[in-house]
Each structure stands twice: as C-alpha cells, then as structure tokens.
Computed example of a mutant assay.
Amino acid sequence: MAGMNEQDPRALVMQHRELQKRAEMIQQQITMVKISVDDCTKVLKTIEELVNIEEGTEMMFPIGSGSFVYANIGRVDRIVVDIGSGVSVERPLKDAQEIMEKRKAELEKAYENMNASMAQVSQQMQAIEAVVSRQQQEQQAQGQGQVPR
C-alpha cells in the first residue's frame, strides 16, 4: 500500500468499500466451508459407529428439520458416497471413510486459506482506515491553524 498517503480520500474510501464487500464474500465462503467440514465430521463419526451395529438393527435417521424416521439397517458393510458432480458410488466402509477423510482435509485446507485471505483483507482495510484517519487529523490541524485567535 505504498503511496497510499498521497491518494485522494474518496479513492481510499472506495477501496475500503470494495475490500469490505470482498471480506463479506470471503466470510460467507468460510461459513459454507465450515458447515461442510462439520458435515464430514458427522459422517466420519457415523461410519465409525456403523462398525458396532448389527444388520437388522432399528435406528432413527434424520430426514430434515429436526425430524426422524425409524429404519432397519439392511447392510453395514457398504455405504453410498457422493464423489462429486452429483455422482454417488457404493463403497466398503473403509473406502468411504478414506474418501470422507480426504474431503475433510481438503475442506480444512480451504478453510485455512480463506481465513488467511480474510486476515489479509482486514489488514488492508486497517491500513486504509489509518491513512484516512491521519489525513482527517492533518486537515483538522490545518483548519485550526488557520483560525484567527
């Protein structure tokens, strides 16, 4: 942000607004990725629990909005997993677990990158705020110096 001190305050305000919009967009993405990471965590915990469940066991499964349905577990040795682009495949528990662990690791890396981007944008916003504040103080000081005593 070299040369920022010489910039027009209006240009700095515009840059700040753009950075603010970018920060809001990044924050929305961070929220969505965090939800996906949490979802992967739930799936991995469920897969771990399936090892202890016998076929034919009656369980409650979520169907949305805090509602559940009772169902009997027909098979516990395979899971249908979304592998992307709307494609789902049936995989053994171990393979499904590996797919979900890989997905979770990728999401966590994206989460970290987005947080780093957010920190960078915040830093840029703070730099602009400091320059604008300094410019305002200088203008006030000049204005006070011109007032007759």
Score class of each variant (00 low, 15 high):
residue 57 T to I: 02
residue 72 N to H: 09
residue 89 V to T: 07
residue 120 Q to C: 09
residue 140 Q to R: 13
residue 51 V to T: 09
residue 28 Q to D: 09
residue 125 M to S: 02
residue 43 V to R: 10
residue 66 G to H: 00
residue 50 L to E: 02
residue 93 L to D: 01
residue 53 I to C: 11
residue 124 Q to K: 11
residue 19 L to K: 10
residue 92 P to D: 13
residue 20 Q to L: 12
residue 35 I to F: 12
residue 61 F to C: 11
residue 136 Q to G: 06
residue 86 G to L: 01
residue 138 E to G: 04
residue 60 M to V: 13
residue 124 Q to E: 11
residue 106 E to L: 09
residue 57 T to G: 00
residue 132 V to A: 02
residue 127 A to V: 05
residue 84 G to C: 01
residue 18 E to W: 13
residue 141 A to L: 07
residue 9 P to M: 11
residue 135 Q to F: 02
residue 67 S to E: 14
residue 149 R to F: 08
residue 58 E to G: 08
residue 76 V to D: 05
residue 88 S to A: 08
residue 45 K to F: 10
residue 83 I to L: 03
residue 42 K to I: 05
residue 27 Q to V: 06
residue 76 V to I: 13
residue 47 I to R: 04
residue 30 I to C: 03
residue 137 Q to K: 12
residue 38 D to Q: 12
residue 112 E to Y: 06
residue 148 P to Q: 04
residue 69 V to W: 06
residue 149 R to C: 06
residue 105 A to T: 05
residue 28 Q to M: 07
residue 18 E to Y: 13
residue 138 E to P: 03
residue 25 M to G: 14
residue 63 I to A: 05
residue 9 P to H: 03
residue 133 S to W: 02
residue 109 K to D: 11
residue 91 R to Q: 13
residue 111 Y to F: 14
residue 122 S to P: 00
residue 140 Q to G: 05
residue 90 E to A: 07
residue 32 M to E: 15
residue 70 Y to R: 15
residue 124 Q to M: 09
residue 97 Q to D: 04
residue 21 K to R: 13
residue 51 V to H: 09
residue 119 A to W: 10
residue 130 A to W: 02
residue 84 G to W: 02
residue 89 V to F: 08
residue 28 Q to L: 09
residue 148 P to L: 04
residue 71 A to I: 12
residue 139 Q to H: 08
residue 140 Q to K: 14
residue 77 D to M: 03
residue 131 V to F: 02
residue 49 E to V: 13
residue 129 E to Y: 09
residue 29 Q to H: 07
residue 149 R to I: 10
residue 105 A to S: 08
residue 141 A to M: 06
residue 44 L to Y: 03
residue 18 E to V: 14
residue 95 D to F: 10
residue 33 V to T: 03
residue 37 V to W: 01
residue 39 D to C: 11
residue 132 V to E: 02
residue 39 D to T: 15
residue 49 E to N: 12
residue 84 G to R: 01
residue 61 F to M: 14
residue 9 P to N: 10
residue 121 V to Q: 01
residue 96 A to S: 08
residue 90 E to M: 08
residue 53 I to P: 03
residue 104 K to D: 01
residue 33 V to A: 00
residue 79 I to C: 12
residue 91 R to V: 06
residue 84 G to H: 01
residue 54 E to C: 07
residue 54 E to N: 11
residue 54 E to V: 08
residue 148 P to A: 04
residue 126 Q to W: 03
residue 56 G to K: 07
residue 65 S to M: 11
residue 18 E to I: 15
residue 37 V to I: 05
residue 125 M to D: 00
residue 61 F to P: 01
residue 82 D to A: 01
residue 73 I to C: 04
residue 138 E to N: 10
residue 123 Q to G: 15
residue 47 I to A: 05
residue 134 R to K: 14
residue 68 F to P: 06
residue 103 R to G: 02
residue 104 K to F: 01
residue 134 R to C: 07
residue 61 F to Q: 07
residue 77 D to I: 01
residue 44 L to N: 00
residue 132 V to C: 04
residue 70 Y to H: 15
residue 88 S to D: 04
residue 51 V to Q: 09
residue 110 A to I: 06
residue 144 Q to V: 12
residue 34 K to V: 05
residue 104 K to M: 11
residue 48 E to C: 07
residue 22 R to Y: 01
residue 79 I to Y: 04
residue 70 Y to D: 14
residue 58 E to S: 12
